[in-house]
């Protein structure tokens, strides 16, 4: 029973996540406490979910892209783009109506999906390698975002806009509901329809998939568009949370965090099989780590080193070869020892 559990791809990420959370408990007794404050649930766990929402969303999109043996470096810029477009749309809106809010959301999501389609077009139709194709948007997207905001930080004074990233529903941050909705959508499409199988098949061998009748090109196109869609929502949450859009810094290095989350979650960069739940746990690990660093007071100069060490440990634990080398020898020793024990008792 335990063995089959340990074989599960999710086992090690969950163990790491639990360890990181327990470290917090050691420093702060009230870490797991969730209290009701102003009619909302408040506590560090809620914070982690809330803060981690954009990363989780973007990682969901990234998982599907990576499953096709691709990569999307453009998501960080798309986040900035989405925030910039939405914030400029609602910047001068009047409080009374909700129309500007929906216009902003629709426009941001549409433009970002077009950006995703651009990536998909380059990869599937022109045959540019994904890392190069998406690099273009990584550079250009941020530039366009700065053009939209005219190089300044755009502040939004339109209250409804802050609901996306800062609002509460049933006592929980609204962003958590968004993540759940997108995750369910992704899970439904990939696990309840043949889509997931198509994606895995394209990731393993696009040519063979094509010969067996799967339209590989359109599958590729769709995963990049979906990645753009996820980044758009992530960007909306980030920008709405601080009621401003910062073309320079919004979503900076998110693409790397997202790739990391996907890899921690057990999806291989070589494409093929993918694990959406693993990705979610990977993203939560990264966010808990960040929150932990802030709350236990690690000096800022050493933040990156601490983060790197934890990530290294996670990646090592994820590698079956490393596990078999370390734990394997350990197990072999144990076996020998126990045999010795037996010998002793017998005599």
């Amino acid at each position: 029973m335990l063995k089959s559990l340990m074989k599960s791809k999710l086992f090690w990420p969950i163990v790491i996540l639990v360890i990181i959370l327990l470290i917090n408990l050691f420093f702060d007794r009230g870490f797991f406490q969730i209290e009701v404050r102003n009619g909302r649930l408040a506590g560090s766990l809620v914070d982690i979910l809330n803060r981690g929402a954009p990363l989780m969303l973007i990682s969901i999109g990234m998982t599907l892209v990576i499953a096709t043996k691709g990569i999307d470096l453009g998501v960080g810029s798309v986040i900035a783009l989405s925030g910039a477009i939405a914030a400029t749309t609602v910047a001068d809106a009047s409080e009374g109506s909700l129309a500007p809010l929906f216009a902003a959301i629709a426009l941001a999501i549409f433009v970002c999906m077009v950006a995703g389609a651009w990536n998909g077009f380059l990869v599937s139709r022109i045959g540019v390698q994904p890392i190069v194709a998406t690099l273009i948007l990584m550079v250009a997207g941020r530039g366009v975002a700065q053009l939209v905001t005219q190089g300044q930080i755009t502040t939004v004074y339109y209250d409804p806009y802050t609901f996306i990233g800062g609002g509460y529903l049933l006592g929980l941050p609204f962003s958590i509901f968004i993540v759940v909705a997108v995750l369910l959508l992704a899970l439904f499409v990939t696990r309840k329809t043949a889509m997931g199988l198509f994606i895995e098949s394209v990731g393993s061998n696009p040519e063979a998939s094509r010969l067996s009748g799967i339209n590989s090109k359109n599958i590729l196109m769709m995963v990049y568009i979906f990645s753009g869609f996820c980044a758009a929502i992530g960007g909306l949450i980030l920008s709405s949370n601080v009621a401003s859009a910062d073309g320079n810094n919004a979503g900076l290095w998110y693409e790397l965090d997202a790739i990391l989350a996907v890899v921690i979650g057990g999806t291989s960069l070589m494409g093929g099989r993918f694990y959406l739940m693993g990705t979610i746990i990977g993203a939560l690990i990264i966010q808990s780590l960040t929150t932990t660093i802030y709350s236990i007071g690690i000096p800022p100069e050493t933040n990156m080193v601490v983060k790197a060490i934890v990530v290294l440990i996670v990646c090592l634990l994820q590698s079956p070869e490393f596990r078999s080398k370390v734990f394997g020898s350990f197990k072999a020793k144990k076996a020998v020892e126990s045999e010795d024990d037996k010998g002793v008792t017998l005599s």
Binding site: R51, N241, D246, N249
Partner: peptide
């Protein structure tokens, strides 16, 4: 009592302050 980088940005400033308030 606590000192941490907020990288000169609004988003980070908010996130770090949240953690400070929690602890």
């Amino acid at each position: 009592i606590k000192s941490q980088t907020g990288e000169f940005t609004r988003a980070k400033g908010k996130e770090v302050m949240e953690a400070f308030l929690k602890s």
